[in-house]
Simulated scan of single mutants.
Amino acid sequence: MFHRPLILAAMLLPAGVALADTSMPFALDWRFEGPAAPYFVAVDQGLFAAEGLSVEVTAGEGSLDAIPKVATGAFPVGFADLNSLIRFLDQNPGAPVIAAMMVYDKPAFAVIGRKSLGVEAPADLMGKVLGAPPPDGAWAQFPIFAAENDLDMDQITIEPVGFPTREPMLAEGKVAAVTGFSFTSFLNTKRLGVDPEDISVILMADHGVDLYGNAVIVNTDFAAANPEAVTGFLRAVAGGWKATAADPEAAIQALSSRNPGMDAALELERLTLAMETNVMTDWVMENGMGNIDPDRLASAVEQIKLTYEFQNEPDTALYFSDAWLPQDGSLSMQ
């Protein structure tokens, strides 16, 4: 009898009128560039709508940008660097935010060098000049990379550079290598006229750095109240990436309607590099998208300690949860 008024109210709805979709605005980490295309594919193909969700994708201003937006509840979901989230949660204990789906299984942190200037492998940095913007995410991880590869930091000349001058200095030979995101710095250097065969991309994840990259993060208060919506969101995200892998050109078309002034060929190349290097890794192809290796995350936390002093005892259960990942096989990228 308690539920009868609700049932009667539903019966009185006019034919064809549906209940409103759950609103789940999504805060990206950066602008509408190639790697953002899968989310617009999910919108355009009705993958979010099929889950009863209304999703608006919003651009961001960096890997830190989405974390406070989600932690404060301004956005229920966002896209952010897991390592930045770990530090945020250490500095803001109890903040209602956690990673719920790994997307960049390999982070894009890299050293980009010129082969003609003698940089092809980590050891080649010894005695060379490395350009590094002080706020750069890859530069922040460089001490971990150096420790894992037995590099003597005293034998590497660090040249602080600005983001706008980083790749031009590499192209002009004023530095032998730079730190940056693999797909961004590679493409920027190539666009400046450097032969791609002369550009070396040393991905830190391939040289001992166990850190993860960007993940879908969720407000835990929202997730507790709307667990099925969060699972549906993650299912749609996986579907967007799978559809993008099947037809990257169509994905770029979905993106171009939101960023009409972009260079479509450049963004297709950026998307392809990110997808092949950072998202569709061997681990993901074998295990599916979204989850993590707990041992690797524990190792990553130990590596973070090399560059960050925790105020509280680290607890990986605070940083990532697989509780909302769909269990219906939709995470398979095969």
Results as ranks from 00 to 15, higher is better:
A238L: 00
V201E: 03
L255I: 02
E167I: 11
Q155M: 02
E249V: 15
I199S: 01
D263G: 10
A223W: 05
F163I: 15
E249C: 05
G213L: 11
D198Q: 06
A238C: 11
A236F: 01
S182F: 04
I217W: 03
A224L: 03
G213M: 06
T184W: 04
M262K: 08
A177E: 04
D198T: 01
A176N: 05
V175W: 04
E267N: 07
L255W: 01
A251Q: 00
I202T: 10
V216F: 08
F181E: 13
S182R: 07
F181G: 08
G239F: 00
T189K: 11
A236Q: 00
E172D: 12
E197H: 02
D198C: 04
I158S: 09
G240P: 01
M169V: 08
P164C: 00
E167S: 14
R191A: 12
A225L: 05
E228H: 11
I202Q: 02
S256M: 08
K242S: 08
R166S: 14
K174M: 12
P260L: 06
E167Y: 02
G213S: 12
L170P: 03
S256I: 11
T231H: 01
D221P: 00
T231S: 15
V161A: 14
G208S: 11
F163R: 03
L203R: 15
V175Y: 03
N188S: 14
A177S: 08
F222T: 00
Q253G: 10
L170S: 09
L192K: 06
A224G: 15
W241R: 04
G180T: 12
N219G: 09
V194W: 09
A243G: 05
P260A: 11
N214K: 10
I158W: 05
V230L: 09
G239Q: 05
P164R: 09
F186Q: 02
P196C: 14
D263A: 13
T157Y: 02
T231M: 06
I199T: 05
D198F: 02
L266M: 12
G180D: 03
T220P: 07
G239Y: 07
A205N: 13
R235C: 05
L266G: 00
E267S: 07
T220D: 06
L234N: 01
G173P: 02
A245Q: 10
G173K: 07
G232D: 05
